[in-house]
């Protein structure tokens, strides 16, 4: 019997060990995309929401598309193949999701109830009551509290004094969020809070895209009013 390994055997063993080591363990962090061992039908000719889609490049990125077209035209003029051009890296992508064509309204999205959708009455002034169909109830307030704590609390804080956690970091906000307990805001009609959510106000950007449900917006408005009233009661009780 031999007792020591031959160089070739040693080499093979070392290769195996190196291979095992280099391939790492399960769960290792890596920037390399997941390996698809069997490709099967993992990637099909369909598009998910928010995916990029080159087909609409010319529509979504007119400037870059024009630049590329110009380069290609030049190449053709010089007798080169335009498909073999080294093109500049794209900084803009075409999108799979499309907007509705201008001037069209999807079914059920006419939104012609100004009270419900704009917080305004027939005279165009902000209303001070909930729209028909949305009733003040414990459920509505619970929903309002939950949604307020998600979307408004980071800036306006849980109590509505405008000192939310996001405003106290990284050098602080350039403009302090409103303190709902100021007299100015207490005098505001309910519709004002709805209106601020939808259209923003001053440096506060609109939240209509983030809070899509109209009911949720009214629930938040009702909760803001509840916060205001809770302070009022405490102050009066203390006097």
């Amino acid at each position: 019997m031999r007792t020591s390994l031959k160089p070739t055997q040693l080499f093979a063993a070392a290769c195996l060990a190196a291979g095992v080591l280099a391939s790492g363990c399960q769960g290792n962090r890596s920037e390399a995309p997941p390996v698809h061992i069997w490709h099967n039908m993992d990637f099909q000719n369909k598009l998910d929401p928010q995916e990029e889609y080159d087909f609409f490049f010319a529509i979504d990125c007119p400037e870059e598309a024009a630049k590329i077209a110009e380069l290609k035209a030049k190449a053709v003029a010089h007798g080169h193949n335009p498909d073999h051009l080294p093109l500049p890296e794209k900084t803009c992508r075409g999108r799979a999701m499309r907007n509705a064509p201008a001037g069209t309204v999807a079914r059920g999205h006419l939104k012609n109830d100004d009270h419900l959708y704009k917080g305004r009455g027939p005279d165009g002034r902000l209303v001070d009551e909930l729209p028909k169909g949305i009733v003040l109830s414990e459920e509505l307030l619970n929903r309002g509290e939950e949604r307020y704590n998600i979307y408004c609390q980071p800036c306006h804080d849980y109590a509505g004094t405008g000192q939310g956690i996001a405003t106290r970091r990284g050098g602080g906000f350039a403009v302090q969020p409103a303190n709902f307990h100021e007299d100015k805001f207490r005098a505001m009609p309910l519709g004002h809070f709805y209106d601020v959510i939808v259209n923003g106000k001053g440096t506060m950007l609109p939240y209509a895209a983030q809070i899509v449900s109209v009911e949720d917006r009214w629930a938040i408005a009702a909760w803001v009013r509840t916060l205001q009233q809770s302070r009022t009661t405490v102050a009066m009780g203390g006097k």
């Binding site: 998910d48 929401p49 928010q50 998600i150 979307y151 980071p154 800036c155 996001a166 405003t167 970091r169 990284g170 050098g171 602080g172 906000f173 350039a174 403009v175 440096t203 506060m204 950007l205 939240y207 895209a209 983030q210 809070i211 899509v212 449900s213």
Partner: peptide, 30 residues
């Protein structure tokens, strides 16, 4: 849900649009 706001009502949890970042970043770390 402040950012992934569709997660409770849609199949996909939307990655937030840039405006969601600008809610704060037009006022902080500008």
């Amino acid at each position: 849900r402040y950012c992934h706001n569709t997660v409770e009502v849609a199949a996909k949890a939307a990655i937030p649009p840039t405006q969601t970042c600008m809610n704060c970043h037009s006022l902080v770390k500008t």
